[in-house]
Design a binder for these strands. Structure first.
Length: 260
DNA sequence: ATGTCTAGTGAGACTAGA
């Protein structure tokens, strides 16, 4: 089972690019972030034609997450528990049947948190604490479980081309990195780092200042796998070439193949 | 440090968010 995550930066602007990638990559499940669409306007039919069941949790203007899955959801949960006043659409989770045991996938768009000194940064940290609490509870189920998405966290200096440029940024604060580490240390495996210590592995290149042409990237999209999912991991990769396509998102897809 | 993009509003020479 191939499971992918991709911040598409607007489903309306990205529909042709997304369809081209789905046809090429043919994932069994695709988790999208930043759909920037309300549920009613999400182009479900275009994805259903490719054989996907479509689950969305959108809002007007920005944020928004969606999961496309060839297998139907046996369970669907939206919103991260822990704050009933949080209106931002940043989390959707489904469970599908695997060939042997169920697979639970949470698709998340973690708050950016910039600029520091505003309410945005404490919101990010509070959201991360809620994610840790939810992850802790979910791990107790001892399922093949994964938390995938745009974490807006650069875990280590080697995850940025120019780490010094990110020192004052919410994506690279000690608190942000600390909570990411705390989450991972609950028992998850950072799929990409399971067998790859290389520098220069990125998932995001800014639209500005020729970041893509200079390979000035950061690794902020992550696949965190529970022990049960990690045991079934066959391959993980980043579809870097998609950043060079016409009308690209500023993020690229990252995916993992699990033994079904 | 800043060479951009997306959606929304309302029809911008705009703004917010990233």
């Amino acid at each position: 089972m191939k499971i992918a995550s991709w911040n598409i930066n607007g489903v309306k602007a990205r529909i042709e690019t997304a369809i081209a990638w789905l046809k090429e990559a043919d994932p069994d499940m695709a988790c999208f972030q930043e759909i920037k669409s309300v549920d009613e306007n999400f182009p479900k039919e275009a994805f259903e034609e490719l054989g996907y069941h479509v689950y969305t949790h959108g809002q007007k203007g920005f944020n928004g997450v969606a999961i496309l899955s060839k297998r139907p959801a046996e369970e669907l949960n939206i919103r991260l528990p822990g704050d009933e006043n949080d209106e931002q659409a940043r989390y959707i989770e489904i469970v599908v049947a695997g060939d042997s045991t169920p697979v639970r996938v949470g698709c998340l768009y973690l708050p950016n948190g910039n600029p520091l000194g505003t309410e945005k940064f404490p919101y990010k940290l509070a959201w991360m604490q809620r994610l840790i609490a939810h992850a802790k509870q979910s791990l107790e189920k001892e399922e093949a479980f994964m938390l995938v998405g745009d974490y807006n966290v650069i875990p280590m200096p080697q995850d940025a081309k120019n780490p010094e440029a990110w020192v004052g940024d919410a994506l690279f604060q000690p608190e942000s990195r600390g909570y990411f580490r705390e989450l991972k240390n609950l028992g998850f495996t950072d799929a990409l780092r399971a067998g790859n210590d290389n520098d220069g592995v990125y998932t995001f290149w800014d639209y500005q200042a020729g970041a893509w042409q200079r390979d000035n990237g950061i690794r902020i999209d992550h696949l965190l796998l529970s022990p049960e999912a990690t045991d079934r991991m066959i391959h993980v990769d980043i579809d870097k070439h998609v950043r060079g396509w016409e009308k690209p998102s500023d993020h690229v897809p990252i995916w993992v193949q699990l033994r079904s």
